[in-house]
Every structure is written in C-alpha cells, then in structure tokens.
Simulated assay, not measured.
Amino acid sequence: MIRKGKAVTDANKLTGPEKAAVVLLALGEEHITIWENLDDEEIKEISQAMAGLGTVSSSVVEDLLVEFVSGMSAAGALMGSFEQTQRLLGAFLPPEKVETLMEEIRGPAGRTMWDKLGNVNEAVLANYLKNEYPQTVAVVLSKVKSDHAARVLAALPEDFALECVTRMLRMEPVQREILDKIEQTLRTEFMSNLARTSKRDSHEAMAEIFNSFDRQTEARFLAALEERSRESAERIRALMFVFEDLSKLDPGGVQTLLRAVEKDQLALGLKGASDALREMFFSNMSERAAKIMREDMESMGPVRLRDVDQAQMSMVQVAKDLAAKGEIMLAGAGGDDELIY
C-alpha cells in the first residue's frame, strides 16, 4: 500500500520487506552490489515495498540501521566469499591488480612470504624446491621454522637434501638484494601457481556433496549424470574421496585414524569393507584389539546397509578432518600422486 502524506515515524509498524527497503535506500547507490545477493522474488518484494514507502522519518532510519548493525554483530551475519571480494575489488581496481590480490588471498595464510611458506604442505614445497639450486633451497629453509624445514628436508631426495644441509652449515649472512630476489621468485613462480591450482571449481564442490550421499543415491545420481554429461560424471567420480580410498593411508595414518574413530563406528564401517581394507586395519591393531574387533563384528549379525554407509561416511569425515589438521596425509582418488590437504 502506498503511504501518502504522513511520514513513517514508528519502525515497529513496518513489515520485513519495508525495513529492508529503508536500509537499502539509506545505503544508496554506492552499495548497489547488495542487490546481487538477492533472488528475483526478494528483489520484487523489496522493490514493491520501496515504491510504496513514502516519507520515512530520520529517527526511523536511524533505528533500523542500528537494528541492522546489531543483528549483524550478534549473528556474524556478513558472509564473505572469494567471488564477492573479487567483484567488489573489480569496482575500483584494474583487472590485473585484482587477479594478483586474489591469488595472494587464495594462497596460504601469512603476513610475510616466509610465514606463507610455513603454511605450505612440506610435500608440495619439497616438490618445488627440488628443482632449485641447493644454495637457494638452503636460504629458503633457513628462513622458515626449524620443524617445517626438517619436514621439507625429509621429503627431498636424500642426496639433494644432504647438499642443502651442507650449504646451510656454511651459510653466511645473505645480502638483502639476493633475499629480495628469492622472495620475488617464490611469489611469482610458486605462490601464484599454488593459488591458481587451489581455485575451487564446481566439480570439487559437487564431489563433496556426492560423498555425503548414501550408496544407492550416489549411484543413481552418477548414472543419471552420465547420461547427460559423461565428462562431468567422470570428473566428479575422480574427485570423490570414498571409504575404499582409506586403503591408501600409510601405517602411521591408519593408526592415527584408529585412535580418532569411535570403536562402534569402526566395527560397523569395517563390516561392509572389502577384505583387503579390513585386513589393512586389523594389521595396524594389536593382536588382542584385532581379535576383539572381529568378535564385535561377528556378534552384530546382519546390519542395515544404510547404517554401514553412515559409519563409513563418518570415518571418511574423521580422516578428512585429520588431514586438514596435517595429522595424516590422504592420497586422492584422482591419481596416485594427488594429495588432499
């Protein structure tokens, strides 16, 4: 209803869409990008309310803005994303500058280059450094924390690692311009490529969704998708990390996972596992623990496939959480050398 004559003086008498309309009007054209986060129905509803507002008193505007800000602070209500950030930066920066900034943001966290390197997985960093001069590697490893340097050295080819150690022992203070050059090379050749390859595409997101399906639903969706786009179905299948992929864990990873998984979930998950995967878990238990686990599984009798799926999904999620913390390393389904961090 269009309000004529009298000004709106009581915020409590406004509907939700009218309140949103007042806030958006107060923010003005400078914040027009907010509208991009609304769906068509919301835009229509708020636009209709806005057109019918009439005059709104300054006290009402102030009350609503305070309510708006209070609501955000209470709920942490601002949702940021790479895409939203990139779009906002693009409004006042040239495209090449935006891309450089976004690559920095997508890369590992840290204020300085050496902080960032400290948050790069040692296997990834070692894979890059093994192609550099030993003296350059020595400089880089002298700038990161000792525990991280140790893990990187352990991941390098042994002869090359020993050469780097020798250079580090003989190292003298490095000139500032040489250090700056190494830092710039790391930024342009390593960090930028790392940021590009870490961009998340829609197939990765969909693979995570498919990982959460039960077995029948997953099979049904993949079969239907194959009929429409075989390429997409194959990419999603390759990106999915499924229960049987736990067979690629090293012994240390298996033992870490065993300590983290609830025993009843483990028994239920292994009940539906392949013989090879089941034996891999048993071989990493003590003889007594393996015997008890086998007895527990036998005493279960027949179990529902849905319960087994749920237990296996729970184990996979625990494994992913451990991998995210750097406590285990998971080999991805996409290839023998692909890693999930």
Rank of each mutant, 00 (worst) to 15 (best):
S58W: 04
I292C: 07
A126E: 05
P17D: 05
E67W: 10
R304P: 06
S212Q: 14
A161L: 00
K181A: 13
I178T: 15
I209M: 14
L101Y: 09
S283L: 07
K6S: 13
A7P: 14
D201M: 08
G334M: 10
L186H: 12
D296W: 02
D40M: 09
A333V: 05
L186I: 15
L27T: 01
M79K: 15
A224T: 11
R3P: 08
V137Y: 01
V254H: 09
K6D: 11
S247I: 15
R187E: 03
V303C: 02
E295L: 13
L194E: 02
S232T: 12
L64T: 06
A311V: 04
P95H: 13
V139M: 13
F221V: 15
L322I: 09
E30N: 07
L25N: 14
L38G: 01
L64W: 06
D201V: 06
D39H: 12
D245T: 03
L24M: 14
Q135V: 14
K4E: 11
A26F: 04
R304D: 07
L129V: 08
H148L: 08
L24D: 08
I34K: 00
R288Y: 02
I292F: 00
I43S: 02
P108A: 01
A74K: 10
P173M: 10
E183C: 05
G28W: 03
V60K: 06
Y341V: 13
A109R: 13
L101Q: 10
R228W: 04
M315Y: 06
M191A: 05
T15V: 08
E338G: 00
E226W: 00
T136I: 12
N193L: 12
L24Q: 01
D214T: 08
N119L: 07
M285L: 15
V254Q: 10
P157M: 11
Y128K: 09
S286A: 09
A324S: 09
P302Y: 03
V254W: 06
K263C: 11
K199P: 07
V137D: 04
D214S: 06
R167Q: 06
T85G: 08
L257I: 08
F82I: 14
S229D: 15
Q216H: 04
F160E: 07
S299V: 07
D307M: 11
A323P: 01
R111N: 09
G334Q: 14
T166D: 09
M113L: 14
S202Q: 13
R306F: 04
V61I: 15
V124W: 03
S58E: 13
A7K: 01
P94C: 03
E287P: 12
E338H: 04
V56E: 00
E96H: 08
S81G: 13
A11G: 05
V165R: 01
E279Y: 11
K271W: 05
R151F: 01
